[in-house]
Design a protein around this nucleic acid. Structure first.
Lengths: 208, 208
DNA sequence: GCAAAAGTGTTACGGCTACACCCATGG
DNA sequence: CCATGGGTGTAGCCGTAACACTTTTGC
């Protein structure tokens, strides 16, 4: 016989800060998983679809409407929440760092997943470590489409390169990287960086 | 306040038959959407995850365990089922045609989506036309990984090429196609096609 | 004038595209 | 011997990779 379930949404919220890929987490104050870290999830309400629930939750958590998100996988293990059957729709969410109010609760992705080797002693609540792992893979696979949401409208090409290098954990040749981006995704503006104590960079825009 | 929902799984089951990409559908016998066609969906039961529910359902519908499937999107519109709130996890499922028992209920994908231009008069129940459309896009985008599940273990290269051509609706140069596949996905065997009234093709296998 | 980061051009290589004819088998 | 589909090689082009020095600004 079928069983009804609560429908959760779990956004894995990423930003780039201090040259690290970071995820927003909070510490649980109640059981289960008291004092473990978790994603800022929520539940879908009556007459609401997942997208609206997600927007509502992100607005509440981030205190802005300036974010991007995309669904990547739905998690349905019947024991994933020990209290009550709850499935969760996983989203990747991206916010540009100048829209972030404070960086207290943001964690370096590489500091989180280093616990992966200790399956019995995970730092994270529920299946959230798994959700974050899958979200990170999804982010890497789709970086060409997602990178713009981690940048201001106008940005120096080297900032774009550094986002690729941080997320893909790989260095790129500066000349080749510029050529590729100009050929496919970005175009130059007439503006320049300001107030930097070195040669100011030309600013670029994403096409389309 | 949150609302519990039924959790459905909706596999879009594809095969290649008579040089067409076909989807398995059934005609509804009851309201709502009586006499419209629908996917062979199901509901997740107690203590069951989506993957098990899907396997159970596919086994029942296809009368075999020889199929492949992959989750691609979850549909959550609160009005998608007029009877009761039901979200649905969409899967692409693939079956090789020699494992199909009969082809009565299989529909050419291009005959289904030609109704897309008439939004007020869809042939399909619920949001299943939308689910099929998204599944088809997902199949196209991932064909390099999925093609093997539409073929027998050992197959002629030209059969692989025809699968690419049917699904992507695009012709490929035979020499170039062979070189690419041999370089990346397949290797030859020592076996040949049998009982064909022309030069028998060498059979190939997927790597790994 | 020094520190810091921006910006730029060329060559070599490899992969991709375009293209047309011969081969093996059954009937 | 004919019909049917299987199978093959090469040359040109294009994109990618490798590589190091000059420029602009603030201080």
């Amino acid at each position: 016989m079928y069983e009804k379930a609560r429908i959760g949404i779990d956004p894995v919220i990423f930003t780039i800060h201090e040259n690290k890929l970071k995820v927003l987490l909070r510490k649980r104050e109640k059981e289960p998983f008291k004092k473990k870290y978790e994603l800022f999830g929520g539940l879908i309400e009556k007459n609401e679809n997942a997208k609206s629930a997600l927007k509502r939750k992100l607005k509440e958590v981030l205190d802005t409407n300036k974010f991007f998100f995309k669904q990547f996988h739905t998690f349905t293990n019947p024991k994933r929440d020990p209290r009550m059957r709850t499935i969760s729709i996983g989203y990747v969410a991206l916010i540009e760092k100048s829209n972030v109010k404070n960086f207290n609760d943001w964690f370096d992705i590489n500091k989180i997943s280093q616990t992966t080797n200790h399956p019995l002693q995970t730092k994270l609540a529920f299946d959230h470590e798994n959700i974050i792992r899958k979200a990170t893979i999804f982010l890497k696979e789709n970086l060409d489409f997602f990178a713009k949401h981690l940048l201001p409208d106008k940005f120096p090409l080297n900032m774009l390169q550094s986002i690729y290098e941080i997320i893909l954990e790989e260095k790129f040749d500066n000349r080749n990287f510029r050529k590729q981006m100009i050929n496919s995704f970005v175009k130059e503006t007439e503006e320049y960086e300001k107030k930097v104590s070195h040669r100011p960079a030309k600013l670029y825009l994403f096409n389309g």
